[in-house]
Every structure is written in C-alpha cells, then in structure tokens.
Design a protein around this nucleic acid. Structure first.
Length: 610
RNA sequence: GCCGAUGUAGCUCAAUGGCAGAGCAACGCUUUUGUAAAGCGUAGGUUGUCGGUUCAACUCCGACCAUCGGCUCCA
C-alpha cells in the first residue's frame, strides 16, 4: 500500500471515530456497531433511540468539524480482553463486547473475508490460530474511546475540516444478518483535502448523467408503469437494441452449434418438484392464481417460469439420445419472472421480468472441460465486441444443496482447473453456487461502480439425474449426461442497462436506434432529403428524415441530444455538389463525401460492430 | 421484505394552510432558416392513491402504492 493511500485510509478511519464521538454526544445511550473505511470514505453503524433525520446529519457534521479543529490526539491503549469487556459493559456497549468475544474465539472480528476468500457470514469458520489473542487495543480521541485495531492519524490536526461530508443514512443489519437488529448506518465521504472532495462530488454529477434510468427515458428506450413494478416496457427504439443483441447472439450461437427451442412459460408444480425448484425456489416464483386462496388452475398449481432449465431437461428427455448427439446445446430466450423483493428493484439492473440468453449444454462427463473452454471463448468474443471489462468468480457449494458432497467436490475441482488453465484471473465466493452445482459468474460494474452479475456458467449433475435423462453410450450402456447452464449477456435487461451506462447512451452504429439523421435546410430540399432517406433505408441503414420548418441549428440540437452517430444536413451546397457533408458524433471535422462512400462507411461500421 | 428519502402538466422544477405556476416538449399560426434552442398563441392538473384533521389541504396526520439510495438477497 502506498504512503498516500495509507494516509487517506487513516484520515477516513479517524473520521469514523470522530463521527462516533459526535453521535455519542448527541445520543449518550447510543450503542455502537462497527465503523470501517470504504471506497470513498467511511461509515459507522449505531443503534439509536430515534430515527436520524437529514438535519441531524448537518448537526453531526458541524460537531465533527469542531472536534477535528480541537487538534485531538489518537492515544493507543491496551487492555486484556476481560478488562475490555468490563470496560464496554460499564458503558452499555453490547456490540463491542460481541466483537471482543469474536477476537477471543477467532482472532478477528471480520466475517466477510479470510485469507483472500469471500465467505458468507453464516459459512465462515473460526480461524485455526496457534495462539489466541488475550489483549485488545483501544483508541482514545478526546473523551471518546473505541475498540480498534488501529490505523489513525496521530492527531486530528492532520485532517482538513472541509475535506469530508456526511453523505447519507441507511439501515444495515448488525453483522449483515437479517435476524439481527437493524442499525442506522451513517455514510461519510472523505478525502485528503476539500479539492479532492469537490472533485469527487463533480464525478458523481457526471456519473448521474450516465444513469441508464435517466438516459432510458431521454432516449425513449424503455419505461415503467406502476402496475408492473420491475417489469420494463420496451419502447420502439429500445426494441431495436434488444433485437440487435438477440440477432447477433443467434447468429453467433448457430456457428457454435447451438439449437434454439421455445418452451412453455407456465408449468404445473410437478415439473418444479422434479427439478428441485419447488423445494428451493417456489417462494421466489410467481404462480398462476385462479380463484380464492389456493393458486390453481382446474385443481392444479402452476408456476410461471423463473428459469429455463427444467423445460430444457424435458426436451432432452423427449426422445432416445445417443452419445453421438453430445454435446447437445439447446438455447432459448424465453421470458422469465422472478419475485424479487420490492426494495431490491433497480431500473433495468434488477427486474422481475427478463429474458436470459440462455442455453443448456448436455455433455458427457469427459467433455466438460472442452465445453467450458468453448463457452469461455464465446464470452471473450462477446465482451470484446462491446469493449466491456469483466471479471470471473467461482461460486462453490451453498449451505443448502442437492446431491452428494463427493460429486460437488469433483465438480468444483474441475471448474478450478478450467479457470486456472484459462489464464484469466478469478475470485472465489464460497457458498455462492446454485443448489444443483457450482458456477462461474461474469461480473461487471455499473456507472456508480456497483458490481453486477452478468453471465454465468453453471455445472449441474443433479437435474439430469432427477429428470432421469440418459443417452446410449458407445458401448451400449445407458449414461446420465451432465448439464451446463450458461448465459453470456446474463439478462438482456441488465446487459442493456450496463451498455447504456458504458456508452453513456452513445451506442456504436450497429446498436444505434437511429443511425443517420437527415435534416433539410429549406423547403427546396425536401424532395432530395426524402429520396436520400429512401436510398439509405434500402441500403439497410436506420435513418430518420426531418424536413420540418425548424432552423438548422434546432434540428442539429435535436439529433445531438438523441446521440445519433451520423447527421446529414441537406441544402443548396449538397444539391449542387452532389455530395454529402457528414457530421459525425463527437467529431469537429465534417468530411464531404459521395453517397456511395458514405453508405460504404456506415455499412462497414455496422458489419464490423465498431 | 427492512431502514431512509422522494412523488406537482409528457420532461425539469416553482408554489408552506387561503384562486396550482414557469421553461422545455405537444398542438396551431407565422418563419424556410447552413451545423447545439426562430416568434406569437393554444391546450395540458382529482398535486401517486385512499382516508383523516380544518371554514379551507399540494402544504398537517395516517395507511397504501411506486421510484431512488442502502441492508438482506440476486441474472
């Protein structure tokens, strides 16, 4: 870690202490949780006698500035764990006592991370320590003393009083567990100086301009209605992008030997009982409701599909299969519905209705590595087209799973080997696999830097067995295939959301809903503009002709705001020269070229997807 | 689902208990314009929904719905 970064972390960590100190002054009975450093600042969790208001934040911020200006030293203290527990018991800080007990037992208070591997809280194991710690450190700033491992500035004089800002309040469960009490979390932004803080605030303003929800409505790509929360309406321009992505996907997957199927959106619960989803997923599915209370159609319970795999299994099992057919790759893009919690919905990034660019590859066991390689090759090709950065993450056996541990271990070992051999860096998230098998996820960030799971490649030994799928092997024996579930985009909805933010709405030509805008100068140019529009449309280019009475400046403004890649203004000059003046998005220079040259250029860009 | 914030015309926002307004967009008329906003006019509202308080509610209170930021979850 560099000196500067270290210093910044110390500033942020120190400010968390100052915040806690200010909160304790305001609420002497406040119980303190934890207050770590985060990407652009810090937070601290509190159990308070009443709900904080935005006004409280202002007051706390003011008090923090005053404390910082008092030039308080951070004094290190050491106590035995017993003394420390007594100390915090006297001060009625049960959360701190819990942390000390963790230190005694595990040597750490951290639940999320151990040895570079992410753990789910419930899954984390005590560290095997040769010697358990018997003392803990505390830090004193002014009157405030907190349990802390350290990493502060020496004195608050090292912090500039205008380099931080209390940002927002939210709820957070103690130790990240829904069963625990919910604390109030105060987030703060903090930097070395006021300029860096101002720069970050400007950055956030820029980020807000890329927000796919804002651009989606400005560019008329999609919308929502309160009667369908989490279920997007795709508008004509958005459908163009949607279809371009699917067309490209179809075209590529035919080349890779995939066959597309379409299957029912509604199946009896029996199907999900076989697949295991009834037991593991039914509460997250929408079910068909006919009549009161019970959800049934003619006495049968139906579920709207939340995943395609059970029906892919049905198709595989619909006839006798031979080893010669394997790998058998069945793809589909049917609409899926998942009952996501209302508080988690977020524009296109988290919806209740979506399509996955799904496929299920049925393979023999020894074909797994090569099929995985083939899929990773598709991933690489797709993400390169969009110039998107992604990372891979292995998800291992969850707490609740199907099948036997030996099969799981074998599958996880296989995936680990494939990932290592791929050469692409990856992380591991323990317990994050699907209930039927381990998985490799493709992760990407949105404009705010939040990480989202996009594609996923999941290994499944369970469902083929449960559906009693088999193929005839070369030796005439019956064998169960292995299924690989995989999506490349992930969901089209989420992918388009990320794409909008990635391109800030300025899509490459092949995805642009309108590729060429034609605007007339005057009345005399209408016929020519219409003719030109027709010629471009016939060349397979999406074109919009605007021959209205508005000024040229206004027409250009309209097209610019729609982020259309090419603009052609047609006037006397173009008429007499028989050439086009081409205004290119994001460029100053306006080259003059013949219609043929322009068409060639645009068609090349569409074909090459640049 | 939990915590918090927000919800006024298609969009961006005014109006703090006393007649709901502006700019842009839309529509009409005039203008036919040379590379990011021509002029004038018209229309547009049960202020998210339902209930309560009040002589009077966009404004105060309650419930619900939706959206946003977190938490938990997750493609």
């Amino acid at each position: 870690m560099s000196e500067d970064k270290n210093k910044l972390e110390h500033i942020r960590h120190s400010l968390a202490h100052i915040l806690a100190s200010a909160v304790l002054e305001m609420f002497p009975q406040a119980q303190l949780g934890v207050g770590p450093v985060i990407e652009h600042g810090f937070y601290y969790d509190f159990l308070l006698p009443r709900t904080l208001t935005p006004e409280d934040l202002g007051k706390l911020e003011k008090r923090m500035r005053a404390l910082v200006k008092e030039k308080l030293a951070f004094e290190r203290m050491e106590m035995s764990t017993g003394e420390a527990k007594k100390f915090f018991a006297e001060r009625k800080q049960p959360f701190k006592i819990e942390l000390i007990e963790d230190i005694e037992k595990f040597g750490t208070t951290e639940l999320q991370r151990a040895e570079g591997v992410e753990h789910r809280a419930a899954n984390s194991k005590p560290l095997a320590l040769s010697s358990k710690p018997t003392t803990v450190t505390l830090y004193k700033t002014g009157k405030f003393i907190d349990l802390c491992r350290g990493g502060h500035v020496e004195n608050t004089s090292e912090i500039s009083a205008d380099s931080f800002k209390l940002d927002k309040i939210s709820g957070a469960y103690w130790r990240g567990d829904q069963k625990n009490p919910q604390l109030q979390r105060i987030y703060g932004l903090a930097f070395e100086n006021s300029e860096a803080l101002a720069a970050h605030l400007r950055f956030l303003e820029e980020v807000a301009k890329r927000d796919h929800k804002k651009l989606g409505s400005e560019l008329e790509l999609f919308m929502f209605h309160h009667t369908a929360p989490g279920m997007p309406y795709w508008l004509p321009k958005g459908v163009i992008i949607y279809n371009e992505l699917i067309n490209f996907w179809r075209h590529e997957h035919i080349k890779y030997g995939y066959q597309e199927i379409v299957s029912p959106l509604l199946n009896k619960k029996e199907l999900y009982e076989i697949s295991g989803h009834f037991e593991h997923y039914w509460q997250d599915m929408f079910v068909a409701d006919q009549g009161e209370g019970e959800v049934e159609v003619e006495g049968e319970l139906y579920g709207i599909k939340a995943m395609n795999c059970p029906n892919a299994m049905v198709v595989f099992g619909s006839k006798g299969r031979s080893y010669r057919e394997l790998p058998l790759r069945l793809s589909d893009t049917d609409m899926l519905h998942r009952f996501e919690l209302s508080g988690t919905l977020n524009g296109l990034l988290r919806v209740r209705e979506f399509r996955q660019d799904d496929a299920h590859c049925f393979v023999m066991e020894d074909q797994i590595p090569q099929e995985y390689e083939r899929i990773l090759e598709i991933v690489k090709r797709f993400y390169a087209i969009f110039k998107l950065e992604y990372s891979l993450r292995l998800g291992t056996r969850p707490e609740i799973f199907m099948g036997d541990i030996a099969t799981w271990n074998k599958a996880e070992a296989q995936l680990t080997r494939i990932l290592k051999e791929s050469g692409k860096p990856y992380t591991i998230k323990e317990g994050d696999g699907a209930f039927y098998g381990p998985k490799v996820d493709i992760l990407m960030n949105d404009a705010l830097g939040r990480q989202w799971q996009m594609g996923t490649i999941q290994l499944d030994f369970q469902q083929p067995r449960r559906f009693k799928l088999e193929y005839t092997a070369q030796d005439g024996s019956r064998k169960t295939p292995v299924a690989i579930h995989r999506v490349i985009y992930g969901s089209l909805e989420r992918f388009i959301g990320i794409l909008i933010e990635h391109f800030a709405g300025a899509f490459p030509v092949w995805l642009s809903p309108v590729q060429v805008y034609i605007g007339t100068v005057g009345e005399a140019h209408r016929v020519g503009a219409q003719k030109l529009g027709k010629q471009l449309a016939e060349a397979g280019i999406r074109v919009e002709v605007d021959d209205g009475a508005d000024t040229v400046g206004y027409k250009i403004r309209k097209a610019e705001k729609q982020k259309i890649p090419y603009m052609l203004i047609i006037g006397d000059k173009e008429k007499s020269l028989q050439k086009l003046t081409v205004r290119i998005r994001g460029q100053q220079r306006q080259p003059v070229m013949t219609l043929a040259a322009f068409v060639k250029r645009v068609r090349k860009e569409i074909a090459e997807k640049v």
